[in-house]
């Protein structure tokens, strides 16, 4: 047992140290102080709603979220979940959000039509193709944000830091081309996206949950980071909750197996 413990400690140390050893030279990330971090972390629904608002009003003009459907917004632990409408497709808020979008479709007679969105529709992409996205954004296509916090080291903290990383003095030797910005959290330091989240960029809904929350740049950055964190892995709350039960079960199971083991080997010298 002692050896096993030592071994697991050593391996944990190695795994833990590796990312630090491989730091890529970008600035140390700032924490988004997300309520969702850690084994017991849970999302703040009001924050997810604000984050979705920011995505919709700011990010969505350039960034797609192809893997998300409007119905996802009403799923359990999602921004607009309501217990009365456990089926997200029936959720009136979700329906209303979807209806606000125009979806290109083909009707039964084969004509191109535009119709109002349904909860089963995907978030529409701002550009029809990768090539168009590139052409409209200085040669670099804005990345899809569906799994962005999984696709970047640091996850939500990276998003928060990146949003807040504008306005630093450009260090000597870094050349920032026309239409580009300097951002120390971005790999290479030169980013195609200009600063987006500034104070009062959006107006938060005047609800009970938003009371006292001002749309400062930092608040907006935290909110979009939370929303993207949720969107990248919508089942994470469920996962953490299930994990608690499984860990507890395995612990008790291990205890019983241990006593069984001791009892069976009691008479054996070994």
């Amino acid at each position: 047992m002692r050896k096993l413990l030592t071994l697991s400690l050593i391996s944990a140390a190695i795994f833990g140290a590796m990312p630090a050893l491989a730091s890529t030279g970008t600035a140390k990330l700032m924490s988004a102080e997300g309520s969702y971090e850690g084994m017991f972390g849970r999302f703040d629904r009001a924050q997810l709603q604000r984050g979705f608002q920011i995505y919709k009003e700011v990010c969505a003009s350039c960034h797609s979220m192809k893997e998300l459907h409007f119905r996802n917004l009403g799923e359990k632990y999602g921004p607009f979940y309501s217990p009365e409408h456990a089926n997200p497709n029936e959720n009136p808020v979700v329906k209303a959000i979807a209806k606000g979008y125009v979806i290109a479709d083909v009707d039964a007679s084969g004509n191109d039509v535009e119709r109002a969105g349904l909860p089963s529709d995907r978030f529409p992409a701002p550009f029809a193709s990768d090539a168009q996205a590139k052409a409209a954004n200085g040669g670099v296509a804005p990345p899809d944000l569906s799994v962005i916090t999984k696709a970047r080291m640091g996850g939500a903290d990276y998003i928060y830091s990146l949003m807040m990383g504008y306005g630093h003095a450009v260090p000597h030797g870094v050349v920032v081309g026309a239409g580009k910005s300097y951002n120390p959290y971005f790999a290479g330091g030169v980013i195609g996206m200009a600063q987006q989240l500034t104070d009062d960029r959006v107006t938060y809904a005047d609800t009970e949950a938003n009371k006292g929350i001002k749309p400062t740049a930092a608040q907006e950055s935290r909110d979009i980071a939370a929303f993207l964190q949720w969107a990248s892995d919508p089942h994470q709350t469920e996962r953490k909750a299930a994990g608690l039960g499984v860990m507890l079960f395995l612990f008790v199971f291990a205890l019983f197996t241990w006593f069984s083991y001791q009892s069976i080997w009691r008479k054996v010298e070994h």
Binding site: L4, S8, G243, V246, M247, L250, F251, F253, A254, T257, W258, S260, Y261, I264, W265
Partner: peptide, 16 residues
């Protein structure tokens, strides 16, 4: 039973 115990302990780390 001995392997079983070790398996359950290993599964705990895995489950984490």
């Amino acid at each position: 039973v001995k392997d079983g115990f070790a398996i359950v302990v290993f599964l705990m780390v895995y489950a984490w």
